[in-house]
Simulated scan of single mutants.
Amino acid sequence: MATDLYSHFHPDEHRFVDKAQEWIVRAALNHAVKQTDFLDPRQAFIVQSLANRHGDVNLRFEGGYGQAERKRAIIAPPYREIGADEADIGLLSVTSDDSRFSQLDHGDFLGSLLGVGIKREKIGDIHVGDGCCHCLIASEIIDYVHLNLQQVHRVHVLTETLPLDRLQAVNQTLEELNLSVASLRLDGIVSDVYRLSRAKVLQPIKSGRCKVNWKPEEDPSKPLKEGDVVSFQGFGRFRLIEVEGETKKGRIRLKVGKFV
């Protein structure tokens, strides 16, 4: 692939860029149809960018419902119509009679799904609601998960496969924080959100454990802006909701939402 194309992407993304380029070339030149695993928004952006650059493919993203964050892509020759059902997304309902079930969170369900031996790329959005959790999963492995997922964080659970139109989508809750920071630097805001010293966030950022809008970010001084979503490995993620202005002492007031 041309070096100038690589210049648009982080080095950690080059491997995925190569794969995505191959999918697109095969669709355009060899009339192949590619169904991807679930992509995060950054990966979907890369696929869309490469498809736009090539121009001779038909591309469709499906995540099981309209507001999905994680989606599968179908890449096909330009003459090939693509239906929504070709994404092959299944819905798994997880319930339990155990009173501790209501205390489980998104991370508990994700960890237990990965614990049965499947890859993260086979899992779409996870919706934790009152009394049940609905997980969007690649259809080719959903029966395996149905048979093998028996516990979530030591809570015994029951599973059932449902049609997609039974999905109970839940908007992820944000715990709002009001902060006063010296600048919009990434390291400063991360340290304030997670109540860590600046020294404790510097090295993880520099070593690639932080992403901004799903893109690896190794520059601690990168300024954040409204709407940015930051993930910090081992601590979760947050969104910079609003830059509210300056205090009398010249500090910047922020409203941040931690995903819970």
Rank of each mutant, 00 (worst) to 15 (best):
A2W: 13
D4N: 13
L5I: 15
L5W: 10
E13R: 08
F16W: 11
F16S: 04
K19L: 13
Q21C: 07
I24V: 11
A27T: 01
L29K: 07
H31A: 09
A32Y: 01
F61H: 07
G63T: 05
Q67G: 07
E69A: 08
E69Q: 09
R70N: 03
K71T: 08
A73E: 03
E81T: 12
A87S: 10
A87Q: 03
D88A: 12
L91I: 07
D97P: 14
D98G: 12
L104K: 00
D105L: 06
G107Q: 05
D108T: 01
F109H: 05
F109G: 04
F109Q: 05
V116F: 00
I118D: 06
K122C: 13
G124V: 10
G124M: 06
V128K: 03
V128I: 05
D130P: 00
A138K: 09
S139T: 12
E140Y: 09
I142V: 15
I142Y: 02
V145T: 01
L149V: 00
V152L: 06
H153S: 14
R154K: 14
R154T: 09
V155Q: 08
V157G: 10
L162T: 05
P163G: 13
L164G: 15
D165I: 12
A169S: 12
T173R: 14
S180G: 10
G188W: 12
G188S: 12
G188D: 10
V193R: 13
R198W: 14
K200E: 08
V201P: 06
I205L: 10
N213M: 11
P220A: 09
S221Q: 15
L224R: 09
K225P: 00
S231Q: 09
F232H: 09
R237D: 05
E242M: 08
E242L: 06
V243D: 05
V243Y: 08
T247G: 12
R253C: 14
V256K: 01
V260F: 10
